[in-house]
Computed example of a mutant assay.
Amino acid sequence: MIRMSKPADTRQSIIDAVLRIIGQDGLAGVTNRRIAKEAGVSLGTVTYHFETQHELLRESLLHFVGEETRRFTELADLCRSDGIDLDGAAATVAQVAGGTEFDSTHIAPFELYVQAGRDERLRTAAAECFAAYDRLAARILGGLGVPEAERVAGTAVALVFGLQLRRLATGSPASDLVDALLLLARGASSG
């Protein structure tokens, strides 16, 4: 008996395939045929769920950031409920940064953000993503008692992205990211 996939499952399989392809070969590797093969669906199924490549890239970007935001919001809630201090926050960040290897799914957002610089249609999605990261950073920084956490949040997010890009390009350790965030948080805390 053949089991039919739910449309939401099929759509998610396609998005996951797009992120893997982008992470492996960049945007140039994203073709409907390759997506279909990677997702294990027919070519027509790809175009049924996503009429344009822009829609596919936007949804892939939003999916990745939605998952990351959910994960980091749960982490922020734990930090706040445990009354976390700066050293505890550093240990948590070290755990998360050290546990995130740069597999193809984690490389893909960098490609998508660069593409948003070239494609105005993706900028809105990128802006939504960065706004979510900023809100999360403000929440964590506020929980740590950093004054004007919302003002500092964008800087923290930029620092994280820059250091993650550096990690990706050079293989530098996650501890560099943690040290930089500690420096920022200590400076912002002292006023």
Rank of each mutant, 00 (worst) to 15 (best):
G162Y: 03
T47A: 14
G66A: 11
A158Q: 11
L177T: 06
L86S: 07
V41S: 10
V178E: 12
A39V: 03
T124R: 13
A28V: 07
R34V: 06
L182I: 03
T170H: 08
N32T: 04
A90F: 06
E101I: 08
L163G: 08
I107N: 06
V96A: 15
L19Y: 04
V93H: 01
H54W: 06
C79T: 02
R166Y: 05
T124I: 14
L182F: 01
R135F: 11
E101W: 04
S175N: 05
E55L: 07
S172C: 13
D119S: 02
I21T: 01
T92I: 15
A174T: 00
A28D: 15
I140C: 08
T92F: 09
A126F: 10
D179Y: 08
A36Y: 01
A131L: 15
K37D: 06
D87H: 11
L183H: 12
A126E: 08
T105D: 15
T52R: 04
L159S: 05
Y48T: 03
R123Y: 03
P147Y: 08
G26L: 00
R135K: 07
L165W: 14
S104L: 03
G98V: 00
E55Q: 14
R166W: 05
A89Q: 09
G26W: 02
R121F: 11
G66L: 07
R70Y: 12
L159H: 08
R33W: 05
V152T: 09
A137Y: 12
G83F: 00
S60T: 02
A90Y: 01
T155R: 04
R166S: 10
A188W: 02
Q12M: 07
G23I: 02
E120G: 13
G162M: 03
R58G: 11
E59M: 08
D119V: 13
L168N: 01
S190Y: 09
I14A: 01
E111G: 10
G66E: 07
A76Q: 04
G83M: 08
G142R: 04
F161W: 11
Q12V: 03
S42N: 13
S81L: 02
A126K: 09
G117I: 05
L182P: 06
R121K: 10
R58P: 02
L62T: 09
G98C: 06
I35C: 12
R118V: 09
T47S: 15
A188H: 02
R33G: 04
T10E: 09
R11L: 00
A169L: 13
A131Y: 10
A158R: 14
G142P: 02
I35Y: 12
G162N: 05
H106K: 05
V114E: 15
F110H: 11
A188Q: 00
V178L: 09
L165D: 13
I107R: 15
E150S: 14
A39F: 07
L57F: 14
P109C: 01
F72E: 04
V46E: 06
G99P: 02
G26Y: 01
L183T: 15
A108S: 11
S190I: 14
L184A: 02
Q164S: 14
T47K: 13
R34L: 13
R20Q: 13
T69H: 15
R186W: 03
E51T: 08
A185S: 05
V152Y: 06
F64W: 14
V30P: 00
L163E: 05
A76M: 01
I14G: 00
T52P: 10
F102L: 09
E59Y: 08
S189P: 00
Q24F: 03
D16M: 02
D176N: 10
F64G: 01
S5M: 01
I140M: 14
